[in-house]
């Protein structure tokens, strides 16, 4: 990467801090503290805070999913919200119109998001990687327009009254239920991301990202490996969408506009592509920033765009980047 010359003494200092944080005992200690803190929060936080935290967990899952595509495999997906939409609508339609239990809709939402990932990724991943970016952008629009114009998706007003499920005999209705549920999802997503990163597949992604030709010469099936990344990312998005549907109980096409995809991408880039703590940090920034700076309103996306540009030009490795040897 072209980062060497951009690294100043100051960033080298932060890199040292990160390296210190990454020592195992320190890391486990921080993890334990964080988990205890997270579990205790509902004891003394109000509903507004819980709502924000739940939102943060939700975006962490989405960002970790996109991170597999963008960070691990180095593919640019500009229509990530489409998979999120597919998951949400699958659950919404199956539960509200076919009376299906939420937990039974999950396999379908995985199936449909994976299938659409294959349909979109299959032909495009054979071509130059920039084609994927524009096709996913188009796909995002197709899904949104389809959701707005089909009758089964409830048209422009969307679906309402999506049934909430029971979990261990508890009817999930209070905000702290979703707080814990989504936190569980975050832990799952982190474990899956971590395991993938250090798997054979993860190394293949890294290889392809760094040098596609060399990877192919080493016997890695370029298209297949990229497709795995794309489809696994799609499944993450679909799952997150399903849970979003029961939390909100209502979904509408306008949730899944391009801005949504762009914001998730920004969070991944901001935190550091490929690095799990970085991506989590990015997702937190994404949710907290507009809450802290309420008054900026319309300026929000403009600022996001400027931040994205500044990061790419001056610190393309993100706040907490992956250390590469």
């Amino acid at each position: 990467m072209n980062t060497e010359k951009n690294i100043t003494t100051q960033t080298r200092l932060t890199d040292n801090i990160y390296a210190g944080l990454e020592k195992k005992p320190v890391l486990y200690g921080i993890f334990a503290l964080l988990i205890v803190a997270v579990l205790l929060v509902p004891q003394f936080a109000n509903n507004y805070l819980l709502e924000i935290f739940t939102n943060t967990w939700f975006y962490i899952v989405l960002c970790l999913g996109l991170n597999i595509v963008v960070g691990y495999a180095g593919l640019l997906d500009l229509g990530y919200a489409a998979f999120f939409a597919i998951g949400a609508y699958t659950t919404g339609i199956l539960s509200s119109q076919f009376g299906m239990n939420f937990w039974l809709t999950l396999p379908f939402s995985i199936l449909f998001s994976a299938l659409s990932g294959v349909i979109i990724g299959g032909p495009t991943l054979r071509l130059r990687s920039d084609y994927l970016a524009i096709v996913t952008l188009g796909f995002g629009e197709i899904i949104r327009i389809a959701a707005r114009n089909l009758s089964i998706t409830g048209g422009a007003s969307g679906l309402i009254g999506i049934e909430r499920p029971y979990l261990f005999g508890i009817y999930l209705s209070k905000i702290h239920h979703f707080y814990y549920l989504f936190f569980l999802l975050v832990i799952l997503a982190v474990i899956v991301s971590y395991r993938l990163h250090y798997s054979r597949l993860g190394r293949a992604w890294q290889y392809i990202r760094e040098d596609e030709d060399a990877a192919e010469a080493m016997g890695i099936n370029r298209v297949q490996i990229k497709l795995y990344a794309f489809v696994i990312g799609a499944i993450f998005g679909g799952m997150a969408g399903s849970f979003y549907a029961i939390k909100m109980t209502a979904i509408s096409p306008e949730t899944f506009v391009f801005t949504q995809s762009a914001m998730i991408l920004l969070a991944v880039v901001l935190g550091g592509m490929g690095k799990i703590p970085g991506v989590i940090l990015g997702a937190c920034a994404l949710v907290l920033f507009p809450e802290i700076f309420r008054e900026i309103g319309q300026m929000r996306m403009l600022l996001f765009g400027i931040v994205l540009l500044i990061i790419m030009i001056f610190r393309p490795q993100g706040i907490w980047p992956e250390r590469r040897n």
Binding site: V70, S129, M299, G305
Partner: peptide, 26 residues
């Protein structure tokens, strides 16, 4: 970014697009 990895310059182009249309929106 011409010599940087392709992904960086693509993301920069997306950022530029966001900046332009949000600027006009504001």
């Amino acid at each position: 970014l011409l010599k940087a990895p392709r992904l960086s310059i693509l993301i920069t182009a997306v950022g530029m697009s966001l900046v332009l249309y949000n600027f006009v929106m504001v």
